[in-house]
Simulated scan of single mutants.
Amino acid sequence: MRVFSRLKIGFGMARRSGRVLRVHPKLLVFPLVGGISGIAFIATLFGSLLLTDSIRDPGMVLYGALFLAYLVETFVASFFTAALVAATRTVFHGEEPSIRGALAAAWQRKLPLLAWSVVAAIFGVIIRIIESEDNLVAQLLAGVFAVAWSVMTYFVVPVIVFRDPSLTEMFSESATTFKNTWGESIGAMATIDVFSFLLALAGLTLGVLTFVVTAGTGIQLLAAVVVGGSGFVFGLLVGKALSGVAKTALYVYATESTAPAFFDDMDFGAFGGYGGGRI
């Protein structure tokens, strides 16, 4: 029953994250800008991957290019996530978040964010090298490494924003926090992923309906793409913002034994069992 209780808390945290976004919609700016900047990376990354696949022996030059692509994307994504976490922390203190202030707070953490991005880029290239081996064992090994890496680094950005950690501390504290909140994390992220999927699906449905309604007009395809694409992107955008808010709340719960604004009606008793008197 404890597992279901922790998952239920995660579902509740996802709902309360939605409250935060409704009151402070400016938080959507950070994943929006980060997502736009990531479009260039996606083009670069997939171009690099296609080029790598087309050459029998990719060599160090192409893997170096892939490393740079991972590095830039990780840093940009982490930077705007850090800004979202900083803005959410301001909300939790009962204050009005500032886009400029949140970006400034993220910039103050640029060096640890860069260090994290370098490590993440190295790991990404290693996974890519393993995946390039044409056998099932390598594919399974790459998958296991990727899952383990995702778990260990789940809270890296909040750790960097809230603390002044060394390189090893940002990974160890992230892993420890996930261990202490695994049920709540899974519950919150699962709820957010389902909600984001439904929003994106609704956007695509609107696009199809627009295509049908505007049949016979010169703007049929354009209108469908604009409406459907906007709805799809909005769903993904909301999902990213909800994830950032929920992850920040989980980190506060696990490390500060306090209830931030919008989450003060949570049942903290279900968090019992954490070491050292932490929630």
Rank of each mutant, 00 (worst) to 15 (best):
R100D: 07
F162I: 10
L199F: 03
D267Y: 09
G276E: 11
F30P: 01
T255K: 13
S5Y: 07
T168L: 00
R89W: 07
F145C: 14
V225T: 04
R6Q: 10
V238K: 04
V118K: 05
L84E: 15
S185P: 04
T210A: 10
N180M: 06
K110G: 05
E133L: 08
V156K: 02
L27R: 01
A65F: 13
G10A: 04
G273L: 07
A69D: 02
E73S: 13
P25F: 10
F155Y: 13
F155C: 11
R15A: 10
V147R: 07
S185D: 05
I219W: 05
G47Y: 09
L71Y: 13
R163N: 05
V33S: 12
L111I: 04
L7Q: 05
L206V: 14
T181D: 01
S37L: 14
A40C: 14
V212E: 10
L84I: 06
T52N: 12
G273Q: 08
G229Q: 13
S196N: 09
S117I: 07
A121G: 06
A148W: 07
G207V: 00
L237I: 03
F4E: 10
S185V: 04
S257K: 13
F197G: 00
G47A: 10
E96N: 07
A200M: 09
A148H: 04
V125K: 03
G275T: 12
I39M: 15
I42E: 15
V85R: 02
P158T: 00
K240C: 01
A148Y: 07
M266E: 15
I279D: 08
L201F: 11
F92S: 02
G276N: 09
A69P: 01
A115K: 11
V252R: 07
T88R: 12
F171I: 08
V125L: 11
V29P: 15
G18Y: 03
F46W: 13
G277R: 05
G101D: 05
H24T: 07
S243F: 01
T258A: 15
A259L: 12
S185N: 10
F197C: 00
L51Y: 03
G272Q: 06
G35I: 02
A146Q: 07
L71I: 13
T90F: 06
D53E: 15
